[in-house]
Amino acid sequence: MKLLVCVKQTPDSTVRVKVAGDGRSIDASQITWAISPYDEYAVELALERKDADPSTTVAVVTVGPTRSRDALRQALAMGCDEAILVTGAAAESLDGLAVARALAKVVEEAKPALVLCGRQASDDDQGLVGQALAETLGWPHVSTITKFRPADAGPAGSVDGIDVWREVEGGHEVWRTSGPVVLTVQKSEKEPRYPSLPGIMKAKKKEIPEKDASSLGVDAGGAKLEIVKMEPPPARGGGKIVKDGDMKQTAAELVRLLREEAKIL
């Protein structure tokens, strides 16, 4: 089985993001980039399938500026077999739908049995690309999954379909889907694996083919969305510690503050 994982390179969660001077983008000068966390779960889920069945191959693709190559290297270091970088001037400013269209071309060429995406990217949190990709391809999709595996083999040993687990309140739903499908990933059971050093060294040497976004029929003008303004969240005011007096007095003071100052009681 061939799996394709779509990832996005986003600022690492340890980075304190600042708005750039233009007021419409983030200041990229001090940023450490990484694979978006949900996408990392998607990579882990794909690799767990490969652990279970070594005949599985896992390819990873990203659409973005050339620095996104590092995200692909990270996925290769974790154990993915091949990587495809869709880049070029056109790839710098695409919106979710345009990214999905570019990915659809890659999927048509690579012909994977299923496609995994993170449920949303950690930078813009739109949660759009997976579903848009499925629609563009005309494939079914299941969102926010936590596990998948081939359904029990039929009498001829052929795979009937894929069983998919979704976390719901208090338990799991199990879905069965046939044929090619797009899955968006909520979480993997295990934390995304730590790349081994030989894995990192091998990934460093691996060839990553590059596709120009415009050659896939998308261009910079294709974006339907435009960011007008970005602003940081308002600075948090200092908290207040109620500590004078005994327990009764502090409780009374707390109620008074919640009622009169915070006005939430």
Partner: peptide, 13 residues
């Protein structure tokens, strides 16, 4: 840690 990448999750973090 280096050959297997097998580190307790919190240590890995």
């Amino acid at each position: 840690a280096m050959n297997e990448g097998d580190v307790p999750p919190e240590a890995q973090r």
